[in-house]
Nucleic acid binder design. Structure first.
Length: 572
RNA sequence: UGUCCUGUGGUGUAACUGGCAACACGUCUGACUCUGGAUCAGAAGAGUCCAGGUUCGACCCCUGGCAGGACAACCA
């Protein structure tokens, strides 16, 4: 009903309330004023296809595509696929799906760093020819040790001064499969004492006989990320290369490579921003991978995962994620965003679009002792009070109902507006009832609440105006459908799951109660709900139909609970 | 004991580029309500890491500290 992503709104619209620019927009506008790059704005989103996208990537995606949209530019989707041992088409497919779902389109076809392997190879030879690169026969361990530390200079490789001819021969032999993996690498010849570690003769090419998801077995040498990334941006005419803070140190190296290799004035401008951190959430690919691999969750799209596909399955909308990205802003200082802000963003969106329905998650039977047993009435219910044009539907009402166990208390505290012995409450869209009697089993557990029904108080009737303090939801005991409901809670107990004490594992912070499965009773209309549709179960929360649903065996996911002022009052 | 980056309410992000700090979330009141939702009205909460300096005037500039982060993969 409401799941097709609306096209992202045109943000060049000047009718929008003026918002101050973030630091990236300020740079872009300054460049535009200078007429730099013919006043083009061309960004790119460059994921490595070795994992699934998460909410942190969504920030970057919204940034890159948002910038292009705002300044009438373009954005490339480019896969940085320079390491075939870790990459797979499974990931490129999921990434494309996620970016599209978020509401963005890239220019024509997606691009790959592997598209540039030929050019990159030629550039490597150029460096050799210019005496700026050499083949090193040493092992990874030795090279690493020779690199020195951040406070001490490195030492030069004994192979550093091979002749150009020898280097060229050796490099071509590497390319032609003349060496086993690890036998040698191609290194840039820069400065082993440089304060920037990346200038200490960085590795340009290494040998790998792994088949590449796109180039197959054409190559057995692959460029390192640092030797591919900046040049890829250059080849694509990228004007602003937006990336996260940790790549700041790489920037001078990218510039160095281009300075050696091309003679145009044009350069992509790299701008770094602080990555997103969320409370109660781990975001590193490595950790998410581990959660999936070791079955701490049920796959990448487990609704408890911060992955885009997890959030999608959980019931988040693209609009809510974009609104979230907008709200968190972008800056260069480290930050931790309250997950509550993400939850606020879905509630805000779902409140406007989700149809309302009645569902009882923790049922207790309620009998209307003065209501005829054979009677079934159909009560009018509003589909969405935020959108009256969506009309009404009918809900069957009978003598025996289910209500929420939490909506009844034998000894209620002050300000308890729900049902209690002798108290009155309205059944949503129905009648005002009074609790007359409580039936319990041997264990003292309430098995039935017996009430009288004020037949004059029917919603919409001429005499329905009586006010009572509370309204509760319900479902007909005979007409209700039975479904499975999955109640999710945060995956981690600790607010900062990355921060673990010495000798402890971050997985100890997992919340054992992050998934609770219950059987629930729902109004009949819900049985026709379609996969991925969003609903608000009145007074409970937002739910969507899970893909595990089968005909006759519906499964609903709780996206997020409704804000619960009462729970806060009584201390959660 | 290196280089680079960063330091504004509880959390994020602003401050027309030097004129004593705004917005959002959160928190707390109250109104309204057939969702203790939504909505509406209002409040509290920082004097901008610290110390000097320049200036009539500094969150914005300078100096010196302090604190946090990044960087030593044949990963990206």
């Amino acid at each position: 009903m409401n799941d097709t992503p609306l096209p992202a709104e045109n943000s060049t619209n000047s009718a929008e309330p003026a918002r101050s620019l973030n630091f990236i927009e300020e740079i872009v506008e300054a460049n535009l004023r200078e007429g730099k790059n013919d006043s083009r704005v061309h960004t790119r989103f460059p994921p490595e296809p070795n994992g699934y996208l998460h909410i942190g990537h969504a920030k970057s995606i919204c940034l890159n595509f948002g910038l292009a949209k705002r300044y009438d530019g373009k954005t490339n989707l480019r896969f940085d696929d320079t390491n075939p041992t870790k990459e797979d088409v499974e990931y490129v497919d999921s990434i494309k799906e996620d970016v599209r779902w978020l509401g963005f389109n890239w220019e024509g076809h997606e691009l790959y760093a592997s598209d540039y392997f030929d050019q990159l190879y030629l550039w490597a030879e150029k460096l050799i020819l210019d005496g700026k690169a050499y083949v090193d026969d040493q092992s990874a361990e030795i090279i690493s040790r020779q690199r020195g530390t951040v406070t001490t200079p490195g030492v030069e490789s004994p192979f550093r001064n091979r002749s150009i001819d020898e280097n060229l021969l050796l490099f071509r032999k590497m390319r032609d499969g003349g060496f086993p993996e690890g036998a040698c690498v191609l290194r840039a010849k820069i400065d082993m004492a440089h304060t920037n570690m990346f200038f200490r003769d960085p590795i340009l090419y290494r040998i790998s006989y792994t088949s590449h998801h796109r180039t197959g077995t054409k190559w057995c040498i692959y460029p390192m990320y640092d030797f591919a990334h900046g040049q890829s941006d250059y080849l694509e005419g990228i004007t602003h290369s937006i990336c996260t803070l940790e790549f700041e140190v790489h920037r001078p190296l990218y510039d160095w490579f281009l300075d050696q290799l091309v003679d145009t004035e044009y350069r992509p401008r790299q701008i770094e921003f602080a990555r997103l951190n969320l409370t109660y959430t781990v975001m590193s690919k490595r950790k998410l991978f581990e959660l999936v691999k070791n079955n701490y969750v049920n796959g990448w799209d487990d609704p408890r995962m911060p992955t885009i596909c997890g959030l999608r399955r959980r019931g988040y909308t693209p609009e809510s994620i974009r609104a979230f990205a907008d709200r968190i802003g972008v800056a260069r200082r480290d930050n931790v965003i309250d997950v509550g802000l993400l939850e606020f963003s879905v509630r805000e969106d779902l409140n406007k679009r989700a149809r309302r329905a009645l569902a009882v998650l923790n049922p207790v039977k309620l009998v209307l002792i003065n209501y005829p047993g054979e009677k079934t009435e159909y009560l009018n219910a509003v589909n969405n009070p935020e959108k009256p044009e969506e009309g009404t539907r009918q809900i069957p009402f009978t003598r025996e109902l289910f209500i929420e166990r939490e909506d009844f208390m034998e000894n209620p505290p002050k300000k308890f507006f729900r049902l209690f012995p002798g108290g009155e409450v309205r059944l949503k869209y129905g009648y005002i009832i009074r609790c007359e009697e409580v039936v319990k089993d041997m264990a003292g557990e309430i098995t039935e609440i017996r009430c009288t029904c004020d037949m004059e108080s029917k919603t919409g009737g001429a005499t329905s105006n009586r006010k009572v303090k509370g309204t509760i939801h319900w479902v007909s005991a005979v007409e209700a459908g039975e479904v499975e409901v999955r109640l999710f809670d945060r995956l981690f107990k600790a607010i900062d799951p990355d921060n673990v004490a010495e000798g402890h594992d971050w997985k100890e912070g997992l919340n054992p109660d992050s998934l609770k499965v219950v059987r629930a009773y729902v109004e009949p209309s819900l049985l026709d709900a379609q996969p991925m549709e969003h609903y608000q179960f009145e007074r409970i929360g937002y739910f969507n139909v899970d893909s595990d649903s089968q005909p006759g065996a519906m499964v609903f996911n709780r996206t997020v609970a409704l804000k619960d002022t009462w729970a806060k009052m009584v201390g959660e």
